[in-house]
């Protein structure tokens, strides 16, 4: 009886979270799958016809958006890593008494809504806004220069939005590195750069992997940034923008559901390849 209860304990602990995922993730996904296989129109109603043909159809039509979304997300991940690593490193190793205050600053943007912050960047970065307008007035920038609605601006916006998701796991990973290991490396003739790459960086890989998953996955499916900072320019649309439009504007539910499914499948594939390459054991530290 006792051992039975002990055997059940882990299951009981998993129940709330697992139940939540089943009800709010697995079930809706199943519905989405069924919706994607329906045919019809919003006005006449949709019937389940097991129309698997929708998948090659949406992939053929929108593959460029998948490529663009993926490349934006990869660029975003690399940028957040490049920008976030020095920040996490500095807070972890040199934060001293300010550590908690600095971490608070990192998460402070979350206190303001994602959409509002993105809208603000649109104002700041607009052609005649406070940054470029000033530079243009000072004659430092060509009058025709514009940044909003370019791929770079969308990547910038994504990088800004997901940076904390990179910094926090990196911080956790770097913070727990025993500083004596770095001393040991320099003691064994490693220069500071070699000690960083051979010890600090390798030991922080779990944080790099976690951080890049946490930035890549949400940014590949993001549509707010491309909508707001991309200023509705179809040239910088990501898959999320099309899915959103199909669901809410053209009410083409099957195509929208199929597009969403392809995205989910693609992300899962990329993530599994990535963790296989870097070694999924790194995630566990």
């Amino acid at each position: 009886m006792r051992s039975l209860r002990r055997g059940l304990a882990p299951l009981l602990l998993l129940l709330p979270g697992g139940g939540w995922l089943v009800v709010f993730f697995v079930v809706p996904m199943a519905f989405m799958l069924l919706i994607s296989l329906q045919e019809g129109t919003f006005d006449t109603g949709y019937q389940l016809t097991w129309n698997f043909g929708i998948y090659p159809q949406v992939i053929g039509q929108y593959w460029e958006l998948y490529v663009r979304s993926t490349s934006f997300a990869v660029a975003t991940t690399l940028l957040t890593l490049a920008v976030g690593y020095p920040v996490a490193y500095t807070i972890a190793f040199h934060g001293g008494r300010l550590k908690n205050a600095l971490l608070l600053l990192v998460v402070l943007p979350f206190f303001v809504s994602f959409v509002i912050r993105t809208l603000n960047w649109r104002m700041i970065l607009s052609d005649n806004g406070m940054v470029f307008g000033t530079l243009k007035d000072a004659g430092l920038l060509d009058q025709n220069f514009h940044f909003l609605a370019t791929p770079a601006s969308v990547i910038f916006g994504l990088t800004y939005n997901f940076l904390p998701f990179m910094i926090l796991p990196l911080y956790v990973a770097i913070e727990k590195i025993d500083r004596r290991l770095i001393e040991a490396a320099t003691d064994l003739y490693a220069s500071r750069a070699q000690a960083f790459w051979r010890v600090t960086f390798l030991l922080s890989l779990p944080g790099v992997v976690a951080g890049s998953l946490l930035t890549f996955i949400p940014s590949v499916g993001d549509f707010i940034t491309a909508e707001v900072i991309g200023a509705g320019n179809p040239q910088v649309f990501m898959v999320g923008n099309i899915i959103q439009r199909k669901f809410l504007d053209s009410l083409d539910y099957p195509a929208a559901a199929a597009l969403a499914f392809v995205l989910v499948a693609g992300v899962m594939l990329l993530v599994s390849v990535y963790t296989r390459l870097v070694g999924s054991d790194r995630l566990a530290g």
């Binding site: 004596r180 290991l181 040991a184 003691d187 064994l188 003739y189 010890v199 030991l203």
Partner: peptide, 29 residues
């Protein structure tokens, strides 16, 4: 700096590199 000195250290609690094998730990220098 330490890496320019012809001394080596056995640290308190050893400070072995946890991500490297015994061979690579010993071969590090």
């Amino acid at each position: 700096p330490p890496f320019k000195r012809d001394v080596n250290t056995v640290f308190q609690n050893y400070a072995l590199f946890p991500h490297l094998s015994v061979r690579e730990n010993v071969a590090f220098g």
